[in-house]
Each structure stands twice: as structure tokens, then as C-alpha cells.
Design a protein around this nucleic acid. Sequence first.
DNA 1: CGAAAATTTGATCGAAGTCAATCATTGTGG
DNA 2: CCACAATGATTGACTTCGATCAAATTTTCG
Lengths: 197, 197
Amino acid sequence: MEFKMTKKDIINTISIKYAPLSSECKSEFFNNSKILTLKKGVILVKEGQHSDKAYFIVNGSARAYYLNDGKDVTDWFAFENDFICAINSFFQNIPSPHFIETIEDTTLLVISRDQIMKLSDKYHDFERLTNRVATKTMLKLQARVVSMQFQSAQQKYQNILLAYPNITQRVPLMHIASYIGITLETLSRIRKLKTRI
Amino acid sequence: MEFKMTKKDIINTISIKYAPLSSECKSEFFNNSKILTLKKGVILVKEGQHSDKAYFIVNGSARAYYLNDGKDVTDWFAFENDFICAINSFFQNIPSPHFIETIEDTTLLVISRDQIMKLSDKYHDFERLTNRVATKTMLKLQARVVSMQFQSAQQKYQNILLAYPNITQRVPLMHIASYIGITLETLSRIRKLKTRI
DNA sequence: CGAAAATTTGATCGAAGTCAATCATTGTGG
DNA sequence: CCACAATGATTGACTTCGATCAAATTTTCG
């Protein structure tokens, strides 16, 4: 984005990208969300926290990750126009197993679960929007399961490059490796085999 | 179930299990769905078909699977009160990469995507219900990704036993093995190690 | 009963992991 | 604005878990 998006712009974008919202619903959405502008490397959610916030990435990127006995394993990437939240904590109201942090300098829109539930209850429009977000996430996870079931380390890497062509310019390789379920060393060897991307 | 459930019973069950529906919505649901009673091993969806049906399992079980160069890989199980559909075909309106078949003699309720969309558009209630189904599926897939990322063959087996305690009595081991992403041989060796479950 | 399906068992192999060391890049404080 | 510490990436040697291939055994069911 060249120009700086206003909160109104952002909500219009969400409405266009996911599901149309009535003006009344948009306005209530407006009043119950806020913009955050963050530096790279800011931790939004810590493991163990109850996190009841959903984040919509306006620009920049973020990731959800586990610390599994000291090993940092990325579980989700979010770029422009994606949502990210501590999925288990958010939907099951339990302590989050994930951390969430910004990968680049990032602008995002924050809305709480309470507000999402209130808006979903009040506006059929908004319920449809959250339904679309969940469905899209479901399909992405489904594709990921298939990828992990059938594909070699090499295929999984090619796969993520197809989904996010410039991810290697934006995200450290170690995060990409752990996201596709291979080690950094293996990814490094895979990349050596081909004309460097 | 000892007694035979009527279609009305089934729709009430869905309403209770997923999200309450108004009588009007239930009645329209009633008029636009049908009960199927099938023998074990019946194929409901074939690879390459456009499938626009969702199935709710009343009793019995079904699975979605791939045939990946001749290898049968189970991708989803559905038991009592679960939904199953050819997820990619249903949501993206593309030829299905999956087959779906009954694993046991099975009674299920069928509803088409068109009807689901019409009901979702007309009734906020129903939109909420489909939202719940998608969210539940999303969380199940999320858990599965984590399982595949972090767990050994043995842990994955213990995991599915926790989720479905009597699955080994109802489903051939080969389907369980491919679902958790290991070979039948490996599963057999794992099972030998412990007091047989 | 007999054929087909499901499971077990054994021997061998290989893709990717682990551990360890080095090299490259980035960014910050003096 | 440079130095050097921290972070990120590469390379090498070795190991391992689970796959593959093959055969035997058990179970299921028409």
C-alpha cells in the first residue's frame, strides 16, 4: 500500500474480501475494533495466555508458533488480508499453546472474541463473514494435511513457494522449514539442488 | 440407538449438537433433506465426480479417502453425529479428489449444497449452524496438523485411540494407519508392543 | 469350505533427522 | 559508522525411524 489505510478502508477491504456487510454492521465493527502498528518481532500472544483477540493483517506479516521443548515450530503464517489468532485459545477459551509474533513491521486490525460473537449474533452478515473465514481456514488446513501426508520435503517446499511466491524474501528459512515440517538443514540442502530461488 | 430415529429426531439432534434452529428453519430443513440407509462398503462419492452433498451420520460410519497411485489413504472418518462431505468438491465446486464410502451399515441424512446455501441465506440460525460445523472441522484439522508435525507413529496411534476409543473394533487397521500417516506394517508392530487394545 | 481381505512378521533400505562446526548477514551500542 | 554479537544459513558425518518388499498367517464372509 502506498497510501495509509484508514480504519474505514480496512473494514471495507474485509467486507470485500470475505463477505459484504451492511453499513450498520460496518459502523459497529468500526466502533469495536482498533488499528495497531507494530515493529517486527513484537509478541502479540504468549504461550499460556488466554487470548481472545483476532488480528487482521493490513500490511506486514505475523506467525503463530509453538515452543516444543525449546524448538520453535511455526504453525501458521498470515500476510496482507489474512486473519490470525491463537486458534485454540480463541475458539476453546483455553490457555494458548501458541505464541504469535510479527515477522515484519506490521499494521493490523484487532477485534475481540466478545465483539465478534456480539456482531455475529446481531448481524447475519457478520455471521456469514466469520463462517467464510472459518471455511477458508478449514480448506487451507485440509490442503496442509494432504501436503504432509503425501509430499516429500522437496515437494512441500515447492508447494509453499507456489502458495507464497516471495515468502523467502519475507520470512526466515527456519520458519518456512518448521512450517512445512522439515529441518532447516534439510531445507538448506533442498535449496542448494536448484537454481536459487 | 435402540429405536429407529425419524427424520424429525435427526434434525432435532443436529439442532442440539451444533446450534439451535427455529421451528420454521427445522421444517424447511426437513423438507429439503432425506434419509439414506446403506450397507457397509457403499461408495457415495467417486474421485472425479462433482459432489455437492453433505452427509450427517445418524448411525454407522463413513470415510473419505484418496487413491494415490493405487494406494488407499483415508483422509477423514465420520461416526455418529459427524458430518462428512467431499470437502474440496463441496466448497470449491471442483471434481472431487476423494472417494467417500460407508465403513459399516450406515444411516445418514443427505442435504445438498444448494439447500444449505439457501437455508444459510434465509435463516441466520442455519448460517450459525454451518459456521459451527466449519469451525469444529477447522479445529479438528488443526489438531491433526499438530499431531503430524510433532508425534511419532506410536504417539499418533495413541492419539487416535483417545479421540475414538473403540475405533479398532469398527474400522480396519489399514484405514487407521493411513489416516495417521503410517503404514499398516508399522501400525502392526506398534500394536504388538503393548497389551493388545 | 475356500477365496478374498486383513494382519502379522522379517529383512533391508533410504529420506530426513541429529549433532557439530563453520560461514554469512544483520543490526545495535559505544 | 564500525565492531562484534546475535541471528540466520550452509555443510558434513552419522544415525534412525519408518518405508518398502516379500511372505506367511489369520480372519471374514459368500
